[in-house]
Design a protein around this nucleic acid. Structure first.
Lengths: 148, 148
DNA sequence: GATTTATAGTTTCACCTGTAACCAATTGCA
DNA sequence: TGCAATTGGTTACAGGTGAAACTATAAATC
């Protein structure tokens, strides 16, 4: 374990390691947005994401929220429960299948959505402002490929 | 709340929303690597990251691990405690400042490191294999800018 | 040199998370 | 029709996580 250590053990350079870099970047970005609504509305990131899905696809079941969001089944169940509890989401039961829920934002839910959504978009723009047009295009293309 | 709903409320398209995409991608990538060592070595992601830092910078304090890793102080403290407990890290006390720890991987720690590190690199390569050379170069450049 | 201030590290608390086990409704199939 | 397998959703459990409070040591200031 002397001079040779470094070469023989070939340690990772964490600062250059893609998974690590993604993790830092993702955390930084998501946290800065979440800070915006978590305290003001007592709204967790998962809850907010469920609200976004319901804003775009009203009257869907919890299952469909999971499918459309890659979120965890349990996380969604809990988020929905809290949103219903807080009067931000209305939950009904599907007519033809009593297991399925039918979810949609309530008035109160929409009010929060309409306040938070523009600010989320602003945050995204702040991040993207660091890139020029070329870079933005490449980033989108690269993310598409990596997530395929 | 009828046809006009969608346009007037302007919901986010989560699938195209950068913070969300980063979060999904980051989770997918990190999880696939973590799956590799978590069960085999009962090693958490935080612990693994601490080990990587110590592989590259032996004999540093917990504080320096925090500085070099952007990890949380508390997370590092706990990870180090568990690593020492498991005999994977040796902890000493700094000669001139009794508050400071002096950390380095033990033999057992190095053994794990040397087994996991190449596999982590392989995983990174698998992800990057989806991109051509141009895209890889742009990705690096873009990440540098976004994280600056 | 005594007292304040800062720093390294740990502990506590309150919460978030995923896995597995679970319940109830539905579907498939003999 | 009756029973097994599947599916939507919830609950229990076993961690992991960050903020804030705390302890011990060191540095700064008077």
């Amino acid at each position: 374990m002397s001079t040779e250590t470094i070469t023989s053990h070939a340690p990772l350079d964490l600062e250059r390691f893609l998974p690590y870099r993604l993790s830092i970047l993702s955390n930084t970005v998501s946290q800065s947005i979440a800070a915006d609504y978590q305290d003001r509305f007592e709204l967790s990131m998962t809850e907010w994401r469920v609200m976004v899905i319901l804003a775009r696809f009203p009257e869907i079941s919890a299952r469909e929220v999971v499918d459309r969001s890659r979120m965890d089944k349990v996380a969604v169940s809990r988020a929905v429960a809290r949103l219903v509890e807080a009067g931000r989401v209305d939950r009904g039961i599907h007519g033809e299948d009593k297991r399925r829920s039918v979810l949609k934002l309530s008035e109160a839910g929409w009010a929060i959505h309409d306040e938070v959504a523009p600010r989320a978009r602003e945050h995204e723009q702040e991040v993207l402002a660091k890139l020029d047009e070329d870079e933005k295009a490449w980033l989108n293309r690269i993310l598409d490929k990596l997530m395929a």
